[in-house]
Each structure stands twice: as C-alpha cells, then as structure tokens.
Design a protein around this nucleic acid. Structure first.
Length: 518
DNA sequence: TCTCCTGGCACTTTTGAATGGA
DNA sequence: ATCCATTCAAAAGTGCCAGGAG
C-alpha cells in the first residue's frame, strides 16, 4: 500500500523529495523545511485524513490544548546517510521529560565489543531489545511512542579478522519506516508506570518487505531513535509536542551472520532463546545429538535459573508490550537506573556544515583501548564504556545526538517558512553532509499501515480505506464508530497480537511538515 | 577464491487455547 | 457462571551450518 494507493485524491506517487534534484549539499538555510513541501499535496489540512477516516469529525483529530502548528519528527531518516538532522518544528515537550535506557548495562557490554544485529528476510528481533523508561510526562496526557532506526554514516563495512572497517559507499537508501509502540496512544501514567519495551521491532534486509519490518542494509551502521509525541491518537492531526532520544550504546552494525565471535558468545550467554548453544562443545550437530539425550536432566535446572516474563494482564488497553518482567530472562544483572538522557546540544554559533560524516578511516580493532572508542562530544557522552574496545570504527563526532527536542515556537500558519533558530542545531560544525549522499531508493515513499488484524478489505485504492470487523454493524464497518476510540479498533495496535503500526519515517516527516497533516 | 547471503535444522521460550477445580 | 491455575501444543525466536550466488 503505497501513497498513491492510499491517497488517490492526491494524484500519482511522488518521491519523498524530487528524485534527481538532490542538492549536492544539504540545505542549511532557514528554508530547509520548505524544501520538503510538496506542491501537489495541496489538500486542505482539515481533509488530509478524510481518506482514512471519512466520517471522523476532524475536530476529534486535534488535541484540544495543542498549538495548531505543523509538526514533524526529527527527519533524520529522510535525509540520507550522515546528513544533519534539522530540528522538527513541533513544540517541545517540557524539559523534564526524560528517557532512560533500561537495559543499558547489557547494551554497554555489546557496544564495547561492537554490537551486531542479525537481519533476515523474514525479520529478526533486536537483541538486546530496546527498553526505556520515561518520566516527566503528564499523567493524563496522551502520548504516542515511536522508534526508528537511522543510518549513522555513508559507508558500508566489512569484517577484517578482528575489526570492522569501511568498505566503500553505503547502499542506496531504503524505504524508511517508523515503528509505533503498540500501546500507543496511552496516557503518560501508563508510559511512566513501567519500562517500555520495543522488543517487537523486527529488522529485515528484504527491500520488498510487506510485513512492516524495518528495512536495513547489511553491513551498515545504524542508530535507533525513540520519539515521544503528545497526540490523542496515532492519527491525530496535531501533535502537542515531541521529544526524541538516542542512546549511543544502542548503535549497531547489521549483518546476516555474526562476524565477531565475541558478539556470538555474548548473545548466546544473554539471550534466553539461544540457551541451546550455551554449553561448551555442543555447537555442532554431532554434539547436539548427545545433548538431546541429556536434555531431560538439564531442563529443570535451566528452567529454575530462568524466570520467564509474566505477561498476562495488560495494564493498559494494549498487549503486554511494555509490561515485560524487567529481568526478561537476561542472564546479566539489570542496569542501574542511571540516566542516559542527554540534554539538547547547546546552541552552536557555527552554522551546520553541509558535508556528511565520513567513516573513520582508521579501523579500530578489538584491541584498542577505551580512549579510542566513541568519539563523542564530551558534553553528550557518558563514561559508560568499560575498559574494553570498540570493534568498529568510531562514531562521527557528535553525529549521534542525544536528545532531539523540539523548540517551543509560536504557532505558524501553514506554508509559512519557519527560520530555524541557531539554538536548534544539533550537530557540531564538523558534522558534514557529503556529496556522496546515497541516492534515494527508487525515490518512492513507502506509507503503510501495518497490523495483522487490519482488515482493510481489499481496496486500498479507495479513498475510504475501510476496515471491516467481523460481525460489525454498518457504522463500524467503516472502521470506526463516531464517539469513541472503538472506531479505531482495526487500526489501533492494541486490539490484538499485532506487531504495531509502522509508518514510513519519510512519510511521517512529510506528513507532519507538509502543512498540517495530523 | 573470497565474501556475503539463504534456508533448513535443532533447540529454546512464548503464547494462547483447553481443561478442571474452587 | 465466573475466576483462577495448570497443562499442552503450536508458534515464534535463537545460532549453527552447508551450500549457493556474485
């Protein structure tokens, strides 16, 4: 279901940006956002959700207290490898909104070695999983939690005996997708009640993936990001503010098979599903048969040492995605709840450079010391690295931000160009956009609603995508009723064992910057 | 020849339906 | 009739490995 299928009234499919007019350098002027407006998207903002929810009163899509400002996520994914990320122009969430990486100690262990994530055609979960805690939200305010994964630089990497090193240019960019936490939307009290797990995120290298998994290239480096958006629902027409967070420890390199034996061993030691590989010498088929004979004796002992996550009572309307037992079967001690939250990069007097981050040309082997690990801005980096080494090249200087937060701004009318205050610059002057920017993947926008139960029966081409619940009456057969969230039953991620809703990051960005989508 | 990817395999945990007792 | 705990099978998540593609 691509844009043109879903929004026929908007004409043919358009690219995220003009496919062949990519400027050699990333625009840094105040007209930045204007560059991502789409003239053909000239439908009044009030009608832009009408295709999805034709009978929904537009007033219900708007947050009562929210400023009527076109909003956007930090558009990193849409900008290409290593390009600077201009700030979203949404109002920021209050400064006391904080996010903590829950299983940070585990991430640190992997990061010290050089985290690798397997990607497969059918989709592979991340391990360690992304689990965060949030504080500072308004208990009664409704929020949507999003996650996306952005490329770190413009290089492809290869494993050379004991380290990663750059190996040519990055592959063309792929359709960007955003994972919406299945509990979304939920009150702040829900999000703050317990750690929020994004464990259902799946990574794939299948560029034609129809399952909504996040599509990544193998042998590339990526950085997960997490976004908190105040909105009545995932289809809200207005966002009441947003903040975005990244944790440097969660940077990883994608592979189709583990390259670093240390990573393999750490995964086996810490991932409950890999328990079967823990015993020394039982890794080949010959020994597995021996293991099978001994299995009954081992089972009890194993189960004793592992406490499966209890997940029988959703605390909120959704499934148990954010209610996992915090131990979650990890064989490692849980991290102390100290904070990975980093304040926004302070105002930078120097305008952003327009060149992309170059990968480190000096491969960092697994034998270098800590000092050679992440080359981060001290202000935004914590001394979380153990005296281990980085197995992959260092991060671009401050290239991985910490907290992207949206500056509070006065409401602006649609189409108005909002100059970016210098205080919003999140990258150091050394962060550069390259002329080698990877080209768009097919120049296509990938906009999809995912959900196993989303039974938009057949015709996405229709401007009225209608989900038809089993046994639904006429009203609900349009996908919703008028007066409650039940109307979104088929689209809400909480109504079944669904992987969550996933949107293209580029699409979200465009929607929320293009003049009042929401 | 080398690097990377794929699919099948064995093993594991998770999930949810079925069942029975209070 | 309802709630709760237990059981069990199916589904799903792991790394390993042989073989294939480029």
């Amino acid at each position: 279901m691509y844009h043109s299928d879903l929004f026929q009234q908007y004409g043919p499919t358009y690219a995220v940006r003009p496919p062949h007019s990519l400027p050699p350098t990333y625009p840094t002027t105040s007209a930045h956002h204007d560059a991502y407006r789409y003239p053909e998207f000239e439908v009044p903002a009030s009608q832009r959700y009408d295709g999805l929810f034709p009978t929904l009163d537009p007033s219900q899509r708007i947050l009562g207290a929210a400023p009527l400002t076109p909003l956007s996520l930090p558009p990193g994914p849409a900008l290409g490898f290593g390009q600077p990320q201009p700030p979203c122009d949404a109002p920021r969430l209050p400064g006391n909104v904080k996010m903590i990486l829950e299983n940070r100690e585990l991430w640190k262990q992997f990061h010290a070695i050089g985290t690798e994530m397997i990607i497969t055609k059918s989709g592979r979960r991340m391990f360690p999983q992304c689990k965060v805690s949030i504080s500072g939200l308004e208990p009664d305010g409704k929020y949507v939690l999003l996650a996306d994964i952005v490329p770190v630089d413009n290089s492809r990497y290869k494993w050379q005996e004991d380290h990663w090193e750059p190996s040519g240019r990055a592959e063309p960019r792929l359709p960007e997708r955003v994972y919406i936490h299945p509990d979304s939307p939920a009150p702040g009290s829900h999000w703050m009640k317990q750690p929020i797990s994004f464990h259902k995120i799946k990574l794939t290298n299948n560029t034609l993936d129809q399952m909504g998994h996040i599509i990544l290239h193998s042998m590339h480096r990526y950085q997960p990001r997490f976004h908190i958006v105040r909105a009545q629902d995932v289809y809200s027409r207005r966002w009441g503010g947003c903040s975005s967070f990244t944790f440097p420890e969660t940077l990883f390199l994608t592979v189709t098979a583990y390259q670093n034996e240390k990573i393999t061993q750490l995964k086996i030691q810490t991932n409950p599903f890999a328990k079967g590989f823990r015993e020394e010498g039982l890794k080949n088929k010959r020994d597995r048969s021996n293991r099978a004979k001994r299995k009954p004796a081992n089972t009890e002992q194993d189960q004793e040492s592992f406490q499966p996550a209890e997940c029988k009572r959703p605390l909120y309307s959704g499934p148990c995605d954010s209610t996992l037992d915090i131990s979650s079967g990890l064989a490692l001690p849980l991290p102390s709840p100290d904070c990975s939250f980093h304040p926004i990069t302070p105002p930078n007097p120097t305008p952003p450079s327009t060149e992309a981050t170059e990968p480190s040309t000096l491969p960092i082997t697994a034998n270098q010391d800590q000092g050679a690990s992440l080359d981060m801005n001290p202000q935004t980096t914590e001394t979380y690295l153990p005296p281990e080494r980085q197995a992959y090249p260092k991060m671009p200087s401050a290239g991985v931000g910490n907290m992207y937060t949206c500056q509070s701004e006065p409401a602006v009318s649609q189409g108005q160009v909002v100059p970016r205050p210098p205080s919003l610059q999140r990258f150091t002057p050394s962060f550069q956009a390259s002329q080698d920017t990877a080209p768009l993947y097919d120049g296509q926008v990938d906009f999809r609603l995912y959900g196993q139960e989303m039974s938009c029966t057949g015709n996405y081409g229709s401007p009225t995508c209608s989900g038809t619940p089993p046994g639904a009456d006429e009203e609900s057969s349009r996908g919703y009723s008028k007066n409650s969230d039940v109307r979104f039953q088929h689209f809400l991620p909480n109504s079944g064992p669904k992987p969550g809703l996933q949107f293209s990051g580029a699409q979200l960005q465009r929607l929320y910057t293009g003049g009042g989508w929401m």
